[in-house]
Simulated assay, not measured.
Amino acid sequence: MGRAGFSMDPEFVAAVARVAHGEKINVARFCHEHGLSRDTFYKYLARFRAEGADGFTRRSTAPHHHPTAVGASVAEAVLRARKELAEAGLDNGPISIRWRLQDTGTRPVPSRASIHRILRTHGQIVPQPRKRPKTRRRFTYADPNGCWQIDGMEHYLADGTKVCIIQILDDHSRLDVGTHAATGETTADTWAALQQAFAGYGLPVKILSDNGLAFTGKHRGRMVELERHLAGLGITSIAATPHHPQTCGKNERGHQTLQKWLAARPPADTLTDLQELLEQYRQIYNNRRHQSLGGDTPQQRYDTRAKAAPATGPRRLSGMSTRPVSATGVIAFSGCSIVLGRGWARRTATVYWQGDRVTVMIDDTVARQLTLDRSVRYQRLTNQKLSEKS
């Protein structure tokens, strides 16, 4: 007889009742024939003598003491903190809720596990038992200003006008060093955002971006204006691998936090209004505890260590790439059209460049040397060059 059937087996009930009333039976044989232990038989016999037929009712196996249970007032404080954080557009997971309870003087402060249990019990979160734990390792620069990440995200004003928010984060500390409202992800707006960040926090050693044309031309074999500005300050420009947004993951995650905060507020009417909101956000974000920083705020982490700085003097960007020569003897390079002459038509040119100084080779022959004139796009041959080629 199975354990779950003890109180329901008629022969067991009858045997216990007969023994309780003084009848003599062979208990050992009965238990052997019915697959029971004598301890079980005598346990129910004692219950029957004390409670009568109620002694056969199955008892709850739940513990009498719940060491992890929290009081109703603590549960109420947890739910209230979650609601307030959500309404403010801030992260409202168990860690953030615990920090808020600490900051507001709630006592006792429940553990993260207890907060998670309260949220689950009250239907605030849905358990995800099959969700894989996060085991990826994050790379972080060792010092503040060792590298900044820059990226733009779309946003909409109250009237539906699409604008751009350019966000700049310090890789080491996650500090928001500049968040700029702009009409679009343009070179002028990007440079303006960076100049404001430089004024407040100094120059970084490197700036990491995705492959937006306002940021870099690295993977297109050219140098954009922003890269020339940065090189002039001694700052190294680095770009993520195409189609690999994880490289700029800290900035991508920062966009999510900012979008959530903005969504909790009425949309701005103008770029000026939006910029005021962004300044409010930066003050909150930079001085609020961060989970990936072990509970430090970005400002605390940024202020803890000495700042890295670029090497003295401007950098001269250089590189090499190949370009097809058109039927009219022209190659496209760094936003310019460089004339070589029809004698080189339909060949493949190798371009060696450092800053704006360029040498174009075809096989082992120098087809042209020049310094790019950025005031024009079409880099014509000089009269001397034309006469040499003819």
Score class of each variant (00 low, 15 high):
Gln379His: 09
Pro266Leu: 08
Gly52Ile: 09
Ala349Thr: 03
Lys24Phe: 02
Ala193His: 08
Phe56Pro: 05
Leu213Cys: 02
Ile166Phe: 00
Gly105Pro: 05
Thr161Ala: 10
His122Lys: 07
Thr371His: 10
Cys31Asp: 08
Pro298Gly: 06
Val78Glu: 01
Val13Ile: 14
Arg107Asp: 11
Thr359Glu: 14
Tyr44Phe: 15
Asn383Cys: 00
Thr350Gly: 00
Ile166Ser: 02
Thr272Ala: 14
Ile118Ala: 07
Leu79His: 08
Arg29Asp: 14
Asn286Ile: 10
Ala192Gln: 14
Gln259Leu: 13
Cys147Glu: 14
Val366Pro: 04
Arg315Phe: 03
Asp54Gln: 14
Val27Pro: 03
Gln149His: 12
Val325Asn: 11
Gln299Asp: 10
Trp344Pro: 04
Ala231Met: 04
Ser237Asp: 05
Asp54Gly: 11
Thr187Ala: 08
Pro144Phe: 10
Gly184Cys: 06
Phe12Met: 10
Lys131Pro: 00
Leu381Gly: 10
Pro67Ile: 05
Asp103Glu: 15
Ser111Ile: 10
Gln256Tyr: 04
Ile207Ser: 07
Glu227Val: 03
Arg49Ser: 10
Ala311Cys: 03
Thr348Ala: 01
Asn251Trp: 09
Gly329Arg: 11
Thr328Ile: 08
Ala53Ser: 10
Thr270Gln: 01
Glu279Ser: 13
Thr270Asp: 02
Ala193Phe: 04
Arg138Ala: 12
Leu194His: 12
Trp353Phe: 15
Ser60Asp: 06
Arg323His: 05
Arg253Ser: 11
Ser321Ala: 11
Tyr285Ala: 15
Ile165Pro: 04
Pro204Ala: 02
Thr161Ser: 11
Pro324Arg: 04
Val376Asn: 06
Leu213Asp: 06
Gln280Pro: 01
Asp54Leu: 13
Asp363His: 07
Gln369Glu: 15
His290Gln: 10
Glu23Lys: 08
Glu227Asn: 09
Gly93Val: 03
Thr186Gly: 10
Glu227Ser: 12
Ala20Asp: 06
Arg38Ile: 07
Phe198Gly: 03
Ala311Ile: 01
Cys336Leu: 09
Ala311Lys: 11
Lys24Val: 13
Gly249Tyr: 05
Arg305Gly: 03
Leu233Lys: 13
Leu157Trp: 07
Ile362Thr: 11
Gln291Tyr: 09
Thr40Asp: 01
Ala50Gly: 03
Asn26Ser: 13
